[in-house]
Amino acid sequence: MTPSPFKTLAAAALLGLVGASGPAQSAGKLNLYNWFDYLPQELVDKFSRQHDVEVTLDTYDSNESLLARLKAGVTGYDVAVPGDYMVRILINEGMLELINASEFPNFGNIPAEYVDVYFDPGRKYSVPYQWGTTGFMVDTAVYDGDIDTLAIIFNPPPELRGRINMLKDVNDVINAGLRYLDLERCNGNPEDLRRLSDLLNDAKRHWLSFNSDGAKEVLVSGDAAVGQIWNGFGMRARAERPSLKYAYPREGITGWMDNLVVLKGAPNLDNAKLFLNFMLEPENAAILTNFARYTAGVSGTEPFLDEEMKTAHEVNYPSSAPPPEFVPPCPDNVIRLYDRIWTNLLK
């Protein structure tokens, strides 16, 4: 006699209930906390199958909101994906689990230049996930002039006014402004900040919205003709609207590296480490890269990458543009000043 599907389901549910109360089940879980739209289901399923682990995924939309929620006492997550400077902050705040990535079997896949990074020398707390740039895209069907300048955002030509989406991210907006004014990053100089604040408040007239998780959608729909965006997300936008073009402003561009970390007090520490090691496998890093469209922080992914990745404007950095700038975390007083400028801008 074959069991009816209903009975099988009921049995499975019962097992689940019984299992949930015992410690055996918790060894088979992993709770991820990642940026939105940043991990393909294919990888989740693959890891799930390989290690018989039940994976849950929650998302956030900026480094700042990750920090805010962890600070607010959100617990239960094992792995998060902070950007470079945020890794530094989380280490300083004692919020990360020491994992000594050099002991991972796949540690050798990390290129040497990504091991001794300023935010985690020797990779004691993190492993690389993806790296990319934060620039902006312009719809060339709307504007066909020179787009490789931040003036597109801060002093836009008439056809682009009122059609600009900015990332809802204090550092991305402020750093772009500082570059446009040719001022130092992590700037605590009141006179400079006043100029910056005036620039932002003046340019806001021309901005349609502040949105990070809708940054792609607003460009694809055509509501915005300019949008601050991360390069890989931008490449995915171009796939849906080919007239979009990623700009490499000559004033400079933000580079970033996102990293996998294990959060302090992770309920599934062993699975978290398994997952980090799993993501260092070139084939898996390539699946991620083909989905997210940034650049892998792992070597040996080339044979697995899509043909498009080799030629895409968004991921192949032009030699004519200034090198991407990785901005370290700013001192406390500067963070406070930035927050004030940001709140003042949004209100």
Binding site: K168, F210, D339
Partner: peptide, 24 residues
């Protein structure tokens, strides 16, 4: 946040911002 484009805050957004971005 969504329909207003996050440009013109209302009280709810102001409060939310203090607990997320601004951390105050």
């Amino acid at each position: 946040d969504l329909l207003g484009g996050g440009k013109n805050l209302m009280i709810g957004n102001l409060i939310a911002l203090q607990f997320q971005g601004s951390r105050n």
